[in-house]
Write a protein that binds this DNA or RNA. Structure first.
Length: 585
RNA sequence: GCGGCUGUAGUCUAGUCUGGUUAGGACUUGGGCCUUCCAAGCCUACGACCCGGGUUCAAAUCCCGGCAGCCGCACCA
């Protein structure tokens, strides 16, 4: 039987809605596309995923987290390029009402690069070249800007334009000087931020895959452009990655599985630091329970890569409904952002890199003979002095030999420098280092898409049973507690056990409604990994059964051992099969 | 944004074409009975015509607008 490929997606989303994982927002007001609510279980799941992310990047990598505002002033986003990039010029056909990216159809029509032109210039091109609707040949409307950023006004007078941030990254670049000082001036260092970002998508229609408000977890790793190594590189040489390089894509080949070592040797991935981030992303996804065979790394084609990026890889997850979707982007952003913020803010955002050995250099400087220089040039002397600081002495010397003078052009004026005005002097200088803009390696996780991937790939349908096989370390509810029948004293004992579990920090639920089978089914459906059942034997010998969601097996354990055993299973990652084998029923 | 299709409890659905009594059913859920291990059964309760306007004595039903969903196109630095 041929299965509808969208079935699984539908079923997952239905249960997610029914059981409180994901809802579309503002439902009682008909909803607004591109926004979702995380329900009670969805919110825990999302937080569990985020906390695992923190354990990777903050605990293991030693990066620190910051939190910056979600509203940003226009200047900051001008510097980052978002004000220009997010203003897409649009036009519409007056006849067939088709809407186009104006720059795209102009570029296609006249085969010229039109990037950077404003709407008026684009409109002029349309009329000069008599560009018509590519579909029906109709007249095109005026060109307007569609801004993908949500705009707002800051302050009571509402004069200052602000935008909801389109990515969290900028919030890390802007306080770079403070961060550099926090890390005591030494590269490399990493900073992370987890939070909401906003993009006013034209037509978001893929549910949680394309949201107008979404959660990003981003790390910005600042490194020396001349040293993109990673201290753990030697430990991961033999790790395998499914790499779908730009070359593979262009030549219409398949993705290639290769070791980390080979990826670097063959220059498939541009740096150790970048490939280490790919490895880390894969490890993280596997630990969330996402199967290996639905993960791949796709390199951006030169044409799709942001203009500032040097190398960029998407971590993609295979879905039945949407094909391969990007859930993590890992880019080498070079020094674009810091350089740009530095230019716009006029703050020096460079890092002083000390050479391992100070460099002693000899150079010849042009030293003015002020006794003659001053009286000769008079009030022009200061600017000529400044000019000579950067001048090439060889050039001056040669000019003296050939013409007996050297012409200095400053603005519209020309000055004649004579040999008697200066002397050449050889000086020794010690250079201890240089100031550079660090490069940035950025892993950027789309948390909402990861939540979707976790739900999608943990969903199991077996016979009459459907459930989320959510990795136990991120399961929203950790333990269910049931009385076998809804009778005292079983109910009372069950409630007591649930409360003990809660006191030990486990999210635990009690259920006595319906039959035991129904309760297991309800518990499975929300992915609770373990269920404890209180039965008649409990009264006799103080034991209960613990049931494993994934294989329905039960083990009888002592009531006193419950919290320790749950702790072993969930926090210490102990295998259910290795619990008290003598007691397996 | 454009075009087509669709909107009835938490879910699936009858009723809409041909306007007319209290919008019917199943599943789910809550309460109770029964029940000693995987959605059984019985009793009982809660629960809906997407929103706004129009036509009409009367609108879930016809018309217009909005919103949302699905499909196609476009868009997705």
């Amino acid at each position: 039987m041929k299965r509808d490929v969208t079935m699984k997606h539908e079923n997952v989303m239905n249960i997610a809605k029914k059981r409180g994982f994901l809802w579309s927002s503002f439902e009682i007001y008909s909803g607004v596309a591109g926004f979702v609510d995380y329900g009670p279980l969805g919110a825990i799941l999302k937080n569990n995923i985020i906390n695992k992310w923190r354990s990777y990047y903050i605990v293991n990598e030693g990066f620190y987290e910051i939190e910056s505002p979600t509203i940003m002033p226009e200047e900051a986003l001008k510097a980052s390029g978002h004000v220009d990039h997010f203003n897409d010029p649009m036009t519409e056909c007056k006849d067939c009402l088709e809407v186009y990216r104006a720059d795209h159809i102009i570029k296609d029509a006249i085969s010229e690069e039109v990037e950077g032109l404003d709407n008026q210039e684009l409109s002029a091109l349309v009329s000069e070249n008599q560009i018509k609707c590519p579909k029906c040949g109709g007249h095109l409307s005026h060109i307007w800007s569609y801004n993908l950023m949500f705009q707002t006004l800051i302050g009571a007078k509402g004069k200052k334009i602000g935008y909801m941030r389109p990515e969290t990254a900028q919030g890390i670049f802007i306080p770079f000087k403070r961060l550099l000082r926090f890390y005591r001036g030494k590269l490399p260092f990493g900073v992370v931020q987890i939070g909401k970002a906003y993009r006013n998508e034209i037509s978001p229609r893929q549910g949680v895959i394309r949201l107008r408000e979404f959660t990003q977890a981003e790390a910005e790793i600042f490194i020396n452009p001349k040293d993109k190594s990673n201290p753990h590189f030697s430990e991961i040489l033999e790790e395998e990655l499914e790499l779908y390089s730009a070359q593979n894509q262009i030549q219409e080949q398949k993705a290639v599985k290769m070791t980390v070592q080979r990826a670097i040797l063959e220059e498939v991935v541009s740096s150790e630091m970048l490939v280490y981030q790919l490895y880390l992303a894969r490890k993280f996804l596997l630990e969330l329970g996402i199967p290996e065979d639905v993960i791949r790394f796709r390199q951006h084609l030169p044409t799709e890569m942001a203009h500032y990026a040097l190398d960029c890889w998407d971590v993609e997850i295979k879905t039945e409904r949407f094909g391969w979707i990007e859930i993590i982007g890992i880019a080498d952003r070079t020094d674009f952002d810091l350089r740009s913020h530095s230019k716009h803010s006029k703050e020096d955002l460079r890092v002083f890199i000390e050479y391992s050995e100070p460099k002693n250099i000899k150079k010849t400087v042009i030293k003015p003979n002020m006794g003659k220089f001053g009286p000769y040039f008079k009030n022009n002397a200061p600017k000529i002095l400044k000019f000579l600081e950067d001048a090439d002495f060889e050039q001056v010397k040669n000019s003296f030999q050939e013409k007996g003078l050297f012409e200095i052009k400053i603005g519209d004026s020309v000055f004649e420098l004579l040999p008697e005005h200066v002397k050449f002097e050889e000086v020794k200088e010690t250079i201890r280092g240089e100031k550079i803009f660090p490069h940035v390696i950025e892993p950027s996780y789309g948390i909402d898409r990861i939540v979707y991937s976790v739900l999608l790939h943990s969903f199991k349908e077996e016979d009459e049973r459907s459930y989320f096989k959510i990795e136990k370390s991120i399961a929203p509810v950790e333990v269910s507690v049931f009385p076998l029948v809804n009778k005292e004293p079983l109910v009372d004992i069950s409630l007591q056990i649930r409360d003990d579990l809660r006191k030990k920090g486990f999210i635990s639920e009690f259920d006595s409604s319906g039959t035991i089978g129904r309760r297991y089914a309800r518990s499975d459906e929300i992915g609770v990994p373990f269920a404890i059942t209180v039965d008649h034997e409990t009264i006799e010998n103080n034991t209960v059964t613990i049931r494993n969601r994934d294989n329905l097996k039960q083990v009888r354990i002592n009531v006193e051992d419950i919290t320790n055993i749950i702790d072993d299973l969930i926090n210490k990652n102990k295998d259910f099969e290795n619990l008290h084998p003598a007691l397996i029923k």
